[in-house]
Simulated assay, not measured.
Amino acid sequence: MPADSKHGLAAGDAFRPERADWTIDQGWEHYTPQDHATWKTLFERQTKMLVGRACDEFIEGMHRLPMGADEIPDFRRLSDSLMRRTGWQIVAVPGLVPDEVFFDHLAHRRFPAGQFIRRPQELDYLEEPDVFHDVFGHVPMLMNPAIADYIQAYGEGGLRAQQLGVLDQLARVYWYTVEFGLVRQEDGLRIYGAGIASSFTESVFALDSPSPHRIGFDLARVMRTRYRIDDFQESYFVIDSLEQLLELARIDFAPVYAAIRGQAEHAPGTVLESDRVIHRGIGSYHRAKRPAQPG
């Protein structure tokens, strides 16, 4: 089941699934030996890389799931394990789905996972989330009750944010937590965000590079901060524990939206005087990639 070009929403209306919720059959039996070999390469190198880098909850979730190196996981088996632990299930989708569909799935404890896998030449970067990003990166954390409740609350909040016209602000919270979040442990900063956990290169950059900022998480601050979709992040936001996300799942975001309405947005690499700076980055990585100024 090789990746062709565009998938899901990015492929256009001609490839829209028949079901209104955009779910499709995973079609596990149609994966080719090359598909499974690609998964194996990704899985083995990433599990080695994450030793001492991923948070304890990620490692525990991985060990509890029917997920290994030899084959792409069957979503039905994953769902059985998740359902017993946190009441979640995995549903197959062709790729990216419309926002309202995505939020509705999350609000009902269904995680939409792309069922295609990247080509062997795309091991290090893929524009669209595939089965490795969605399953390896996200599903282990869904075994944790705090993350499970937080992502459900995010789905419910997303539907409200659409109605209020503040979806961009809420999307930044998801990006800087579920996708690119870091968490403190007694033995140091660790990865819990799926975008980092599924990336061989960013799992090193996020923790080891002197380039990015690492800043204590503040909800209003994050809502006002743009992010990079084309490269490593310039700033990573750090929570003190996963229980901090559970607190976010219980609050009313409406007063926060009201408080930041009309306020200036921050560039991805901005550091504010009010920030709780854990590590002030030197910005060398992104500075080296900017075009040289004339003169």
Rank of each mutant, 00 (worst) to 15 (best):
Q233R: 10
G269K: 08
P268L: 10
V178A: 15
H279K: 12
D80W: 05
A148D: 02
A258R: 14
V178Y: 00
H36M: 09
D70R: 12
H286I: 12
L106P: 05
I59T: 15
T225Q: 10
P255K: 03
G12K: 11
P140C: 06
L246Q: 14
H36D: 13
Q121H: 13
V93F: 06
I147E: 03
E128C: 10
L242N: 07
A288K: 13
E122G: 01
E156D: 10
D13V: 12
L42Y: 06
F253C: 01
P140S: 06
R109T: 05
Y174K: 04
W88D: 06
Y257W: 15
D80E: 15
D187M: 04
H133M: 04
R184C: 10
H133G: 00
Q169D: 14
F132C: 03
D56Q: 14
P210G: 04
E273H: 13
P98G: 09
L65G: 02
Y257E: 02
P291I: 09
F253G: 01
G181M: 02
A69D: 04
V173M: 05
Y176V: 04
E29M: 08
F200W: 12
Y176T: 01
L189R: 11
G283V: 10
A153D: 03
R53L: 09
I117Q: 00
G193P: 04
R53F: 06
G114N: 09
Q34V: 13
F180W: 03
R276Y: 10
H63M: 12
Y257C: 04
V256R: 08
A171N: 15
A20G: 14
R172C: 06
H133Y: 03
D168T: 08
H105V: 06
D25L: 13
